[in-house]
Design a protein around this nucleic acid. Structure first.
Length: 536
RNA sequence: GGCGCAGUACCCAAGUGGGAAGGGAGAGGUCUGCAAAACCUUCAUGAGUCGGUCCGACUCCGACCUGCGCCUCCA
């Protein structure tokens, strides 16, 4: 098994990945709080999680991937002064908290599916795990790390000597109250609530009985409780946004290790932000871009995935429509190359990587040139097949094997998708590699990148009004006759007229094809405002 | 005040102590009645500024300048 290296926030260095159990990887990625739509910055985290998961699997690990859905008790402040975000959102929309949670959870998975993000093996909701949280808090309490004040149970960070190690915080240096009001109940400003009681928050919609009174859990505890339930008290990787380092993950570590007395997580991976011209996007500031905004502007969700892959996950990435245009153009070109290779590979048989072991994937062979695109049944399993990498490299020609190795090295080196992408381009334009083999290699790479190359369909049919389509076909036929008569003026006039209406004609060897102009897909000017518009 | 990141061609963006990936855009070419598409070729003697270490630095060190994130919820 090839060795992987990750940048571990705990220690701030690249470290070789050594799982607790050889050949297996337990991975927890912080999921969404479902009180609003995810914006494209949020979605970067889930694409990164997906890359971690796919990469581990691709390199042969058996992966247990767990993600939470936070559907309760997420205050707008870390103390008990704020409102519950779920509740506020529910009130604004005149729906119940559970309806809100369901609405945005569904929206979230619609987005992740469009981004080709594979669903984690376990997706767990906070509201389904309150008993586990209570049980965990009891252990923390039994170990003497808590105190009760003003109706809330607090975690006492002074009892946990290594508090803040992840974020390299020094408690003495933290400016208490610099940006948030001091909670008078706290003994130390860094203390945080494990359990709130309803006495401190009147309108809480969801409450549970607990040894500390009827109330609801603090935010951080759900991740500790659920990750331990599904991955054990110690596991390999925990990922999330870089913003979680100082508070959320720091507190998770403290409470988890206070409960078990054991080191909790081995590797902490944190993704940097997508930033706008005007600064970062945030839900609470309003005015953020959703995936749907991009789709409405004419982009494919995978254009955004490609855009993300173009930068390293630990670097801030500046979002711009110019950058997204670039990604879209690149992805189109990439798809064209794959389709062209597929034509050239023909019956020779490009097989999917999983075919290296014997079976031939129907989606990768032929089919595309015949009538009808392959149905869902023909799609190969999107999950990378563990252990296939070395076997495939062994089967390839030296030139292709070198490309695939370089790709693997890039991914193994802290998920360097920019380099990996360069290798994908390399294999697709390498004249030393036969088309079928180039395809096979590219598909293997795409099991990690997730750009859907193996499931490409030939030229999507433009969705236009049937009447309009008939009219276009008529004009195309007329132009064909004009061309035969060498009436270039008439032929060009028809082409120009259609172009003015946003329809592009292209004369190919097999006749004229038409498509909608790409320019029509460019984002409207109004959508270019960058995060400064006020919420409505 | 504390923690941290970044400044690479027109744009996005990698790697590297000794030949500066890749993509987009642009330019030239092949093809075409002309286009478009596609394909091929081309595109940073130089890496914010100034010093230092070194046989040699874009890469290490220091200073400065500029931009950015976090220390409230937040991916």
């Amino acid at each position: 098994m090839r060795s992987l290296r990750f940048f571990n926030t705990l220690g701030r260095e690249l470290q070789e990945f050594r799982p607790l159990v050889p050949g297996k990887a337990g991975f927890y990625g912080c999921g969404p709080t479902v009180y609003n739509y995810a914006h494209i910055g949020n979605l970067r985290a889930y694409v990164v999680d997906d890359l971690i998961s796919r990469t581990l699997r691709w390199f042969g690990y058996e992966v247990s991937h767990v993600m939470n859905i936070t559907d309760v008790g997420h205050l707008s402040g870390d103390d008990d002064s704020g409102e519950d975000k779920m509740l506020r959102s529910a009130q604004e929309r005149g729906q119940s908290v559970l309806e809100i949670a369901r609405l945005y959870t569904e929206a979230f998975f619609r987005d992740t599916e469009r981004l080709n993000i594979l669903r984690p093996g376990v997706v767990c909701k906070a509201t389904d795990h309150v008993p586990e949280m209570i049980a965990l808090i009891k252990r923390i309490e039994a170990n003497g790390y808590t105190y009760f004040a003003g109706g809330n149970l607090y975690f006492d960070v002074s009892r946990f000597p290594s508090y803040g190690e992840l974020a390299r915080l020094r408690l003495d240096d933290l400016q208490a109250g610099a940006r948030v009001e001091i909670d008078a109940n706290k003994r130390n400003p860094a203390d945080f609530v494990l359990w709130f009681t309803k006495s401190k928050f009147e309108n809480q919609a969801l409450v549970w009985d607990s040894p500390w009174g009827r109330g609801y859990p603090g935010w951080h505890i759900e991740c500790s409780a659920m990750s331990m339930k599904y991955l054990g008290e110690q596991f390999d990787i925990h990922a999330g946004g870089i913003d979680h380092i100082p508070i959320h993950h720091t507190n998770e570590i403290a409470q988890s290790e206070a409960a078990t007395g054991k080191k909790w997580v081995s590797y902490w991976l944190h993704n940097e932000f997508i930033v706008m011209n005007s600064g970062k996007m945030s839900k609470s500031k309003g005015g953020f871009l959703t995936l749907q905004t991009l789709v409405d502007a004419g982009y494919n969700a995978l254009d955004y995935r490609y855009f993300l892959l173009g930068g390293h996950y630990r670097s801030q990435l500046q979002f711009s429509y110019e950058g997204l245009d670039s990604a879209r153009a690149a992805r189109r070109s990439l798809n064209e190359r794959v389709l062209a290779l597929r034509d050239r590979a023909g019956e020779g048989g490009a097989t999917s990587p999983s075919g290296a072991g014997g079976a031939t994937s129907p989606s990768a062979v032929g089919g595309m040139t015949g009538a009808g695109a392959p149905g869902p049944a023909a799609s190969s399993d999107p999950h990378p097949t563990p252990g296939n990498l070395e076997k495939l490299i062994g089967h390839l020609s030296p030139a292709a094997a070198a490309r695939l190795k370089a790709f693997a090295d890039a991914m193994a080196d802290d998920l360097s998708t920019p380099r990996a992408l360069a290798e994908l381009w390399g294999i697709l334009r390498d004249s030393l590699v036969l088309p079928a083999e180039a395809l096979q290699t590219a598909f293997a790479m795409d099991e990690v990148l997730g750009l859907g190359l193996a499931d490409l369909k030939r030229e999507e049919v433009p969705s236009v009004d049937p009447g309009l389509a008939a009219e276009i076909e008529g004009l195309v036929a007329e132009r064909h006759l004009a061309k035969k008569a060498k009436d270039w003026a008439r032929a060009d006039a028809i082409r120009d007229e259609l172009k003015n209406r946003g329809i592009i004609l292209e004369d190919g060897p097999s006749g004229t094809v038409w498509r909608l102009e790409a320019a029509a897909l460019v984002a409207p000017a109004g959508a270019r405002a960058s995060g400064t518009q006020s919420p409505t």
